[in-house]
Design a protein around this nucleic acid. Structure first.
Lengths: 163, 163
DNA sequence: TCTATGTATGTAATATCATAACACGTCAAC
DNA sequence: GTTGACGTGTTATGATATTACATACATAGA
């Protein structure tokens, strides 16, 4: 499991079943602690996102929910995704109009995202240095940053090697 | 006119007619130099974007084109916008699904964007420090960045003062 | 236990953003 | 003057997202 100072391990070979299971457990604990309700739809959406280190569109998630007997209208997916994002258990990838499970909930809730343009994997990276630089530059213009989006498109180690 | 080391002037009071006219002239020169064709639709779209330091959706642009006798189907707007983005004369703001004219074409084609959540103005800011930090962090994970998106949401100096 | 309240879910309808595919026109090179 | 590249117009459709309202469910207080 990555800590806040090591590069994200999404690209590296790892026991994904364990990684996903672990993330789900931490998610349960976090929501319990914060008083939020982890309902069946919400849990299932998080599980779906955790199945791979990729970003899924709301309609992809919705399709999977529908075959499992949950509602099949867009708000069902969007509401669950919104909840997970608010709780810091998932992230929205602006560039893809899609969502990905947070790989280390409870810490570093504003990472940068590394998106591989070939295999479409998405990893989180520490963004504090970049954010600090951005905030400083914004301050020079008198602008106060409240939230920032930092996303990189490129090649992950695996695809880079393959190419 | 801002240079690459000063904060962007979009938020400051300025002679916008001159600023827009100037940007348009530089755009003409740049396209001419590169062999690209600045057609009436494309020029008009750029002018529309230059009217304000805000981001406009493709359909906003389209509506304005339509009343002026240009085609009124989405591809008309999207194609012109795509052309302008390719030429570095406009930028796409991912967070807003919208487009804004480049305020200093010919230099710094990968700025960060400062988006005011109250007045919706969009300014460009120097992003090289933030990008350098991001690239370094990505490299630690073996990821090779090709393009990156850096956007900040917050309060511009004017709205901050008003609040 | 009952009921009131807030929260979550289901559903229909619609809004918003974006692209594929093809036809037609224009202009410059040959 | 024909060809070929490029730009534009148009139809149709696909993809993403939200509003509004009805229903169900959980939990706290009477």
């Amino acid at each position: 499991m990555p800590d806040s100072t090591s590069p994200d391990l999404a690209f590296a070979a790892h026991d994904h079943t364990h990684c996903a299971h672990d993330a789900l457990e931490r998610a349960e604990a976090l929501t319990k602690a914060s008083g939020a309700r982890m309902t069946p739809v919400r849990r299932r959406v998080l599980e779906i996102l955790l199945e791979e280190h990729k970003a899924l569109g709301a309609y992809d998630v919705l399709a999977r929910l529908a075959v499992e007997g949950f509602g099949n209208q867009p708000p069902v997916a969007y509401r669950a995704l919104e909840f997970l994002v608010e709780q810091g258990l998932a992230h929205r990838i602006q560039r893809l109009n899609a969502f990905t499970a947070c790989t280390h909930p409870g810490q570093d809730h504003a990472p940068a995202f590394l998106i591989c343009r070939l295999c479409h994997m998405v990893a989180e990276a520490e963004a504090s240095a970049a954010r600090t630089a951005l905030d400083a530059e914004a301050a020079r213009a008198g602008f106060q940053v409240e939230r920032s989006t930092i996303e990189a498109l490129g090649l992950c180690p695996n695809c880079r090697e393959a190419a």
